[in-house]
């Protein structure tokens, strides 16, 4: 009887002991999913990229499409996904900024030949067209500048405004409130775990659904923070100083992502549906015999065209 009791006690004690040991082990060494931000090394947590390929790897988003199929598909067809090329005009404009601007019209730029191009020279464009260039060396700037000169679109397509630019690098603007974007976190609209080897947590970005998110690049006016100001998009300035005073209440995301159901394609003038809705055109065309003086009737049509801008910014702008 005593022996039987001992056996029962042993049978009960072993799993209890194992459970307790496991619990203790978990306490001492939390699993990666318990505190992934500390455990995992992020692809962003690496030294400055020395080559374009290294920068592309640092900002690689290929894993995003495994779960975010629709969003990835929309983005991959967008101009954001080819931000150094655009429709072709962007690449051409970057080229003239180098050849006509830096090399000719701006004698104090320090650029006489392509080999002189450094990050500081490209940031007038890349502040928005490739903000991650900040995380690369001057060698990468030169590599990109050379690709621009060569019209090497295959090379330029390797880097762009992608998931990590909006959902990490540019996701925080109130850095004294929220700190710098963390290398292991993907910022969106909610908090929680995120099943990705590098970005193991989701965190809510305070600005993700605000117009200011887009306003960071679809700008205010001249970039005075640059050594030589450049002025590309002025759309957010128009939004703030014209659309809002006119009673406008929508955000960029509401129209360009949700109302037109364009998601991460963020369609604009290239989409006929968006274009047609952006400007309402009403025409009246009465005809009559105009009599500028007696006996001189002039058959005339008076055409009145009323164009109403229904967008949240001036048209055109970018």
């Amino acid at each position: 009887m005593r022996f039987r009791l001992l056996i029962i006690m042993i049978i009960l004690a072993v799993p209890i002991a194992l459970f307790a040991a496991q619990k203790e082990a978990v306490k001492k060494a939390p699993s990666k999913s318990a505190n992934p931000a500390v455990e995992q090394k992020s692809q962003l947590d690496s030294p400055k990229a020395k080559t374009l390929d290294e920068l592309a790897a640092k900002y690689d988003v290929s894993k995003c499409k495994e779960c975010h199929v629709k969003e990835f598909e929309e983005w991959s067809k967008s101009l954001h996904s080819r931000s150094l090329i655009g429709t072709g005009r962007t690449m051409a404009t970057i080229r003239t900024a180098i050849t006509d601007g830096l090399m000719k019209e701006q004698p104090y730029s320090g650029v006489k030949k392509i080999e002189d191009v450094k990050k500081v020279h490209l940031m007038q464009c890349f502040k928005c067209h490739l903000p991650q260039l900040e995380d690369a060396t001057d060698n990468v700037a030169l590599e990109i500048a050379q690709a621009v000169m060569d019209g090497d679109q295959d090379k330029l397509k390797k880097v762009s405004i992608n998931c990590l630019v909006c959902h990490n690098k540019k996701a925080i603007i109130h850095k004294w409130h929220d700190g710098e974007p963390q290398v292991n976190i993907v910022y969106g609209t909610k908090d929680g775990p995120h099943p990705h080897p590098s970005f193991t947590s989701h965190k809510r970005s305070a600005i993700m659904q605000e117009a200011v998110m887009c306003g960071q690049c679809h700008g205010l006016g001249p970039n005075f923070d640059q050594p030589n100001p450049s002025q590309c998009a002025t759309l957010y300035g128009s939004y703030l100083h014209s659309y809002i005073p006119s009673g406008g209440t929508k955000t960029c995301q509401q129209c360009h992502m949700h109302e037109f159901n364009k998601g991460h394609h963020m369609s604009s003038y290239r989409d006929p549906e968006v274009g047609k809705r952006a400007v309402e055109m009403v025409v009246e065309a009465p005809s009559y015999q105009f009599l500028p003086r007696a006996g001189d009737p002039n058959p005339m049509t008076v055409l009145t065209v009323k164009l109403t801008n229904r967008a949240g910014h001036r048209i055109p702008d970018g």
């Binding site: 128009s238 939004y239 014209s242 659309y243 006119s246 009673g247 406008g248 400007v279 005809s287 105009f290 002039n298 058959p299 005339m300 049509t301 008076v302 055409l303 009145t304 065209v305 009323k306 164009l307 109403t308 801008n309 229904r310 967008a311 949240g312 910014h313 001036r314 048209i315 055109p316 702008d317």
Partner: peptide
């Protein structure tokens, strides 16, 4: 700036004289 401003209507009038 002659662009179309948000929530504003620009009115253009053209007088078309027909040939006679």
């Amino acid at each position: 700036d002659t662009s179309l401003q948000p929530n504003q209507t620009k009115i253009e009038t053209f007088e078309i004289f027909h040939p006679f």
